[in-house]
Simulated scan of single mutants.
Amino acid sequence: MAEIIGVIEQLWRYPVKSTGGERLDSVEVDERGLAGDRLYAVRDSTGKLGSGKNTRRFRRMDGLPRLSSRLGRRLDGPELYDPLGRPVADPTAFLRAYLQRPDVALAREDAVSHFDQLPVSVLTTATLDWVREAAPGAVVNVRRFRPNILLRTPPGTPPFVEDDWFGHEVSGGAGTRLALVRASERCVMTTAAQPGLPHAPEILKAIAQAHGGRLDALAEVVTPGRLSVGDELSLN
């Protein structure tokens, strides 16, 4: 029997990878994830994508979290905003000057996925409240953790309840079904300064000590549909 595990309190999409995202009331979910999520990225001449870390696929580009992006109703090109929230007329020209990297450009996803791991991230208010208690000196905001879905859980729900859902599917909204697989492995992006949020290394330290640096539930899309704020999610 399906169990209601929470209500969608916030929906987020991040049109340009590693920049601040846009908060939505409702969004289509396709096989790839939330429509338009991480569809664009800052790409250098070697094909690496701008991120908060250096790996085989990613290149650390400090300053990206201070920017934000928005798609609105369009998927054919994002709007990019500078650290003061002003729209940028020419995103590639701005990024080259802002990052001091003449070889970067704003690029749409092609054969190489822009996702770090899996396409949909679900975070509960129970876990977010725990972070606030574990790092009382930090400014804790959901934007630090970049989930797609912030799920309001019932009072008394323990932190890291997401772990109990791995291996199950959740359903909600207009036919959407997600398979919950594992947690995100958190990196310095969690601590990075962004508008209204100063650098906060104590957050990552607290998560590492209490939960091995893992936070949220990552999911794959089983059945596309639509999600809206206020939708109940049921565990199957």
Rank of each mutant, 00 (worst) to 15 (best):
D76S: 14
G52R: 12
L95M: 07
A89D: 13
E79T: 09
G33V: 11
L64D: 00
D44M: 06
G33F: 05
S69N: 03
D82C: 03
R59H: 07
D76A: 13
G77V: 10
G33R: 05
L84R: 09
L84Q: 14
R66P: 00
A41C: 13
S68H: 01
A93K: 07
V104H: 12
Y81M: 02
S51E: 12
D25Q: 14
V16T: 00
N54R: 12
E22T: 10
Q100T: 05
R96W: 02
T92L: 09
G72R: 08
S18W: 04
R59T: 12
L39W: 10
P87Y: 03
E31A: 15
A41W: 06
G63Q: 00
L95G: 08
G77Y: 08
V42P: 09
K17W: 07
L106M: 12
L24S: 10
D82G: 03
F115N: 13
L34R: 07
R32A: 11
Y40P: 06
G33M: 08
S68C: 01
L49P: 12
R56C: 01
S51F: 14
T46G: 15
E79V: 12
D37E: 07
Y98G: 05
D37R: 03
G52H: 14
T92R: 04
R59G: 05
D90W: 05
G21T: 09
D110E: 15
F94K: 07
D103N: 13
G52F: 10
A107P: 03
R70E: 13
L106T: 10
M61A: 01
P65R: 00
E22N: 08
E22I: 12
D103G: 05
D44Y: 09
